[in-house]
C-alpha cells in the first residue's frame, strides 16, 4: 500500500520531469509538426558502421591494393576483391605496384566486427559512420567498388580521417621529439612479422 503510493509518486515526478525534459528524441527528424529538421543520429568517434574503402587524395587513387588480407580474415566471408597492375605506378605517380580492380562487400552479411580494418596494412578500409542502409531490393546492400569508395569518401570528408599508419608514425615522431623514444629509433617491424594464414 505504502510502496504502491510511493510508486505513484515516482511516476508523478517522472511525468513532471518527462514534460520538461523527455529522454527519447525523435528520429530521423526533430522539431514540431510544422517545421521538421533532419537530425542525423549522433554517433561516437569510434562508432563502427558499414565498412567503406578510403581514397588517397594525394595520389588520387584508392589506398586499397587488393591484397585480400581482409577477405581472408573476414569471419563471415562477406567480401571479395581482385587486383590489377597499377597504371599510375608505371607512369611513376604512385608507389603502389598493384591496385584494386574490383571489390564487393555484401553488407547484409557484414557483422560490423572491424576485423578487416584491424588487419589491413594499407589503411585501405575503414568502418564508416554510415548505419542506415535499408533498401527495398534484396541485393541492394551488395556494394561494389565505386559505392564503397563513395561511402569511404563521405566518411573521410565528415570526420577528417587520418590513416592509422600515419597516425602511428606521427605518434612515434612526437615521442622522439619529447625525448622518450630516442633509445629505440628503429621503425616497428610489425608488418614484416605478420604471419600469413
Amino acid at each position: 500500500m505504502i510502496n504502491s503510493l510511493k510508486g505513484l509518486w515516482v511516476t508523478l515526478v517522472s511525468t513532471v520531469n518527462g514534460l520538461r525534459q523527455p529522454v527519447t528524441q525523435q528520429y530521423p527528424q526533430t522539431g514540431t509538426f510544422w517545421k521538421r529538421v533532419d537530425t542525423p543520429t549522433p554517433v561516437k568517434d569510434r562508432f563502427m558502421g558499414f565498412p567503406g574503402l578510403t581514397w588517397d587524395g594525394k595520389i588520387d587513387e584508392p589506398y586499397c591494393t587488393g591484397c585480400m588480407v581482409c577477405i581472408r580474415n573476414c569471419p563471415t566471408l562477406c567480401m571479395s576483391a581482385t587486383m590489377k597492375d597499377n597504371p599510375a605506378h608505371e607512369e611513376g605517380h604512385s608507389h603502389r605496384r598493384k591496385i584494386v580492380d574490383s571489390f564487393e562487400i555484401n553488407l547484409n552479411r557484414c557483422i560490423l566486427c572491424g576485423i578487416c580494418v584491424e588487419v589491413c596494412n594499407f589503411d585501405a578500409i575503414a568502418m564508416t559512420h554510415e548505419h542506415e542502409l535499408s533498401n527495398f531490393a534484396r541485393n541492394a546492400a551488395r556494394m561494389d567498388l565505386p559505392a564503397l569508395l563513395e561511402l569511404g569518401q563521405d566518411f573521410q570528408d565528415k570526420t577528417g580521417w587520418i590513416p592509422p599508419n600515419e597516425r602511428a608514425k606521427k605518434a612515434k615522431e612526437d615521442e622522439i621529439e619529447n625525448g622518450d623514444g630516442v633509445d629505440n629509433p628503429e621503425p616497428a617491424p610489425e608488418n614484416a612479422e605478420l604471419e600469413q594464414a
Binding site: S14, V23, K44, R46, L112, C113
Partner: peptide, 29 residues
C-alpha cells in the same frame, strides 16, 4: 510497463559508453 522504460534509459547510457569505447553498442569485438 513503466519500470522497463526507466531501466532501458539506464541501459542506454551504459551502451552509449560502450559505443564510445568499442565502437559498437552490443557486438563489441
Amino acid at each position: 510497463m513503466t519500470p522497463s522504460m526507466f531501466c532501458f534509459r539506464g541501459r542506454e547510457r551504459i551502451q552509449s559508453l560502450f559505443e564510445a569505447v568499442s565502437g559498437a553498442r552490443m557486438m563489441h569485438n
